[in-house]
Write a protein that binds this DNA or RNA. Structure first.
Length: 300
RNA sequence: GGUGCCAUAGCUCAGUUGGUAGAGCAACGGACUGAAAAUCCGUGUGUCCCUGGUUCGAUUCCAGGUGGCACCA
């Protein structure tokens, strides 16, 4: 029997979690989360981790199994999730991946080029350089060290330039030499399914969900991690807005409004990303039977 | 019922001494290989309330209507 990874994705708030459970139960399998924020054990309300009931209904992996203090990234996810998936395939023919983190999904489906983790000190030094000397100085440095990448990189995006520089400086080899531009092949086949619905309905769902999170105590959850607000894991919709409120930059009402707006924008960004992927088959969130039929037809 | 003010983008509003319009916010489109819920780029989306009148030309001026607000009854 061929092994198949079914990827269920879509914008935030569309209903991936509950639909994923239906599908996983139908195929009597387990769920591997591909959500870059639900992996953190310190976060639960703001990341909308599955409820206890949902976790009991189907075995989930990669839910709250890391700490915000780790420097987690897509490459580590590739390594860890892939190993897990290989193991699960020993007892299952179908595995369901559920989540909306675009790059994490790509890391599993296509892979990320092998290169070292960024050195913390080098990154901090480059950040400081950006602050004091400006983006132009980083650009010039990149132009010298890695003219090839300089030609293709978004020269207005500091994160991209810093990353290329930190890898180049650290390894002594240009960043572009690590970029193969080739997708890795996987020893299993992949079916990609994405959910979407009318934009207005999605926005309403997002607004409603944010209100529910606030009712469930999102502010207190954010307060608990506030002392660690500089961590990358907390540069996240649903938390950064509270930090701004705690710092007296915005009102509580404004924070809630911004969480809604930023969630909407995140959803749009996700849709843009998945639209580009021709392997993705789109469904509405109320089509579990159609989705199951589609998966079964694909497997045959 | 009377008088006055207002009516322009999804919202709040600016503006055109008459040549079909622009800000903020919201929204929308896009990029993406180790920070990705990150980071970055781009885009006004409009029966200027309706109907007549004046005019070469009206969103702008005039009249009436409709709706909203305020005050007086």
């Amino acid at each position: 029997m061929p092994k198949t990874l079914v990827v269920l994705t879509g914008p935030t708030g569309i209903g991936k979690t509950s639909l994923g459970i239906k599908i996983a139960r139908h195929f009597n399998t387990e769920i591997v989360s591909s959500d870059s924020r639900q992996i953190f054990k310190e976060l639960s309300i703001g990341t909308a981790v599955p409820t206890k009931e949902e976790l009991n209904a189907v075995k989930h992996h990669f839910i709250q199994n890391h700490s915000i203090t780790e420097n987690y990234n897509a490459s580590r996810y590739e390594t860890e999730a892939l190993e897990l998936i290989e193991n699960l395939f020993k007892k299952k023919d179908i595995i369901l991946m559920v989540g909306g983190s675009m790059l994490y999904i790509d890391a599993i489906c296509k892979g990320i080029d092998v290169m070292p983790d960024a050195d913390h000190e080098i990154r901090e030094a480059l950040k400081k350089q950006l602050e004091t000397e400006g983006l132009e100085s980083l650009r010039l440095q990149l132009k010298k060290i890695d003219p090839e990448y300089y030609r293709t990189v978004d020269l207005k995006n500091p994160n991209r330039i810093i990353h290329a520089l930190e890898i180049s400086i650290q390894t002594g080899k240009p960043y572009s030499s690590f970029r193969s531009n080739k997708a890795k092949t996987r020893p299993f086949s992949i079916i990609k399914i994405a959910l979407n619905c009318d934009r207005q309905i999605l926005h309403n769902r997002i607004d409603l969900r944010v209100d529910m999170m606030v009712e469930e105590g999102l502010e207190a959850e954010a307060r608990r991690v506030y002392p660690q607000k500089q961590l990358n894991a907390l540069n996240t919709v649903g938390y950064r807005e509270w930090f701004a409120h705690f710092d007296r930059e915005i009102t509580r009402e404004k924070a809630i409004e911004l969480i809604k707006r930023n969630s909407r924008r995140y959803a749009r960004k996700q849709i843009t990303w998945f639209k580009k992927d021709e392997a993705v088959q789109w469904f509405a969130p109320d089509q579990p039977h159609e989705i199951i039929n589609y998966i079964e037809a694909q497997i045959k």
